[in-house]
């Protein structure tokens, strides 16, 4: 029984890692005031870039770098459109999905679906991996997951406990205030969107480099949308987003197991939960003024225009 639970939880963590990357990157972007709904597209591009680089160079390190670079480029494009050109962010995000899907599909045609390289494999950490229960769950994962163990707490700590993190949060709340203080709002948003998208791209690469080491079209299969939902659901907090992702990963895995055991649960309705939950959270956080510090960054999706006063 214990081994079953352990394997389920461990599986959930491994399964949700790509969403955790994506939601982390998008949280950073949204905290700065830029909402990019095109995560699906960015992840796909990240996935294919990582896969192709790995196929070509057989170097996982280079693949990661290439992915980050590709994500950053897409971030640059998005920032240019939304910050400088002040385009409507929601629609831009959709365009990004289309563009990313198309681009990755095209690049994907030139490689075979089965990997010719060895991806990140699970490594059991010495000592830590031997701890009963916790060991098999947490310390028998691949490097990219271990990276998250550092990244997520680090990002959360940074966002809420450092000076620059504070500035990020202020950026999404009231860019006019920062502008009056002399900060370059536009440059700052560019930076955070670029960083954010680079991380989102890693979410896609995780799938092709570690989780399944294969390439099929549309392999992110909606993970980008779930990540977008989770960012809101977690109220723009990276640690909570990670937990949310794992929670939904758990639901998915438990559901699969139950199905395979022949217990009829309409799994589709379970899968609807992240989306419905997000809407509910949105309603509660918008309407409820008691805990205003939990609500959406006030300046999100509003292009900053110094002249409009």
């Amino acid at each position: 029984m214990m081994t079953l639970i352990c394997s389920i939880v461990a599986g959930a963590i491994a399964a949700s890692a790509s969403i955790i990357y994506a939601s982390l990157g998008e949280t950073i972007s949204q905290r700065s005031g830029v909402m990019n709904l095109g995560l699906e597209g960015v992840m796909l591009v990240g996935a294919i870039v990582g896969y192709c680089t790995a196929t070509a160079t057989h170097s996982l390190g280079l693949s990661v770098l290439a992915t980050l670079f590709a994500g950053a480029l897409l971030g640059l494009l998005f920032a240019f459109l939304t910050v400088t050109m002040r385009a409507n962010q929601a629609v831009c995000g959709l365009a990004m999905v289309m563009f990313g899907t198309g681009l990755s599909g095209m690049m994907g045609k030139s490689v075979s679906g089965a990997a010719t390289f060895t991806g990140f494999s699970k490594i059991s950490l010495p000592l830590l991996g031997n701890i009963p229960i916790l060991g098999p769950i947490f310390f028998n994962q691949c490097v990219l997951v271990y990276a998250l163990y550092i990244l997520v707490p680090l990002a959360t700590w940074w966002m809420f406990r450092t000076r620059t993190g504070m500035r990020l949060r202020a950026l999404g709340e009231n860019p006019a205030a920062l502008d009056a203080m002399g900060m370059n709002v536009f440059a700052a948003r560019y930076i955070y969107v670029i960083i954010g998208m680079a991380i989102v791209a890693m979410g896609g690469a995780y799938i092709t480099l570690a989780y399944t080491t294969a390439w099929t079209e549309e392999m992110t299969s909606g993970k980008g949308w779930i990540a977008a939902a989770i960012v809101v659901f977690a109220l723009w907090n990276p640690a909570k987003a990670a937990l949310g992702s794992i929670l939904f990963g758990l639901i998915e895995i438990v559901d699969l197991r139950l199905q395979s055991m022949g217990i009829p649960i309409p799994s589709y309705f379970l899968s609807m939960l992240p989306y419905i939950a997000t809407v509910i959270v949105l309603i509660v956080s918008t309407g409820n003024f008691g805990k205003r510090y939990n609500r959406m960054p006030a300046a999100i999706a509003v292009p900053y225009d110094r002249e409009s006063r």
Binding site: T162, R163, R169, N174, A177, L178, R295
Partner: peptide, 25 residues
């Protein structure tokens, strides 16, 4: 006012002084 509503008074003031604020809050 150019204030961040969801942050505290101290945070708002320190936000305005740039590097004089410690990196770790």
């Amino acid at each position: 006012f150019k204030l961040i509503e969801t942050m505290t008074v101290a945070e708002n003031i320190y936000l305005a002084v740039g590097k004089r604020c410690d990196y770790v809050l």
